[in-house]
Amino acid sequence: MGEILVKENLTYEKRPVVVIDYKLNELRGKSTGLVKILWVATTGETTWEIEQLCRE
């Protein structure tokens, strides 16, 4: 299991574990790639995030 680095203000940065799924969302003629990310392997916490933001 990885280490958790705690900052001076007692916060930490959550890092994704693995990308589970991908889908293309189309609204008003614009396409946005979405990825489903597993954040905590022990609890199974997942969220859909914008692909471009995850790459940064």
Rank of each mutant, 00 (worst) to 15 (best):
I20R: 06
N25E: 13
G44W: 09
G2T: 13
P16I: 15
R55A: 10
N25G: 14
Y12W: 08
E13A: 05
K7L: 01
V40C: 12
K23A: 14
L34D: 12
I37R: 03
R15N: 12
E49R: 09
N9E: 15
I50K: 03
E45V: 06
R28E: 11
E8I: 00
C54F: 07
I20K: 13
E56F: 13
I37T: 00
Q52T: 15
N9I: 10
L27D: 14
L27G: 04
I50S: 04
T47L: 04
D21P: 04
W39H: 05
I20D: 14
V6R: 10
T46A: 10
V17K: 03
L27R: 09
T46M: 03
K30Y: 06
R15C: 09
L53P: 00
T43E: 01
V18E: 10
E26C: 11
K7E: 13
T46S: 02
S31C: 05
E8N: 01
K23P: 00
K30A: 04
M1T: 11
K23E: 15
L24G: 06
L38K: 08
Q52Y: 11
K7D: 13
K14Y: 04
W39Y: 05
L53V: 15
E26Y: 12
Y22L: 08
Y22F: 15
L53D: 08
K7S: 14
T43G: 11
K14P: 03
I50W: 10
V35Y: 10
V17N: 00
E13H: 02
I20P: 07
V6T: 12
K36T: 01
L27A: 13
E3C: 15
L5M: 12
L53K: 00
V17P: 05
R55N: 08
Y22C: 08
S31E: 12
I4H: 01
Q52M: 14
G44E: 09
G44C: 02
E26F: 11
T11M: 06
G33A: 10
L10D: 13
W48G: 00
T42W: 02
D21I: 05
T11E: 13
L27M: 06
A41Y: 03
E3N: 06
V6P: 02
P16Y: 07
R15I: 14
V19D: 04
V18A: 13
A41G: 02
L27T: 14
E13I: 04
T43S: 10
E51V: 10
I4N: 13
V35W: 02
L24H: 03
T42Q: 13
R28M: 12
T43I: 08
V35A: 02
E45L: 08
L24T: 06
G2R: 13
T32K: 04
T43Q: 02
L10F: 08
T47G: 01
L38Q: 07
N9C: 07
L10T: 14
L10E: 11
T32C: 05
N9D: 10
K30C: 07
P16C: 11
E13G: 00
L38Y: 05
T46Q: 04
E51Y: 09
E8A: 03
I50M: 08
E8T: 11
G29C: 03
I37S: 04
R28Y: 10
E56Y: 06
Q52L: 10
E13L: 11
G2Y: 09
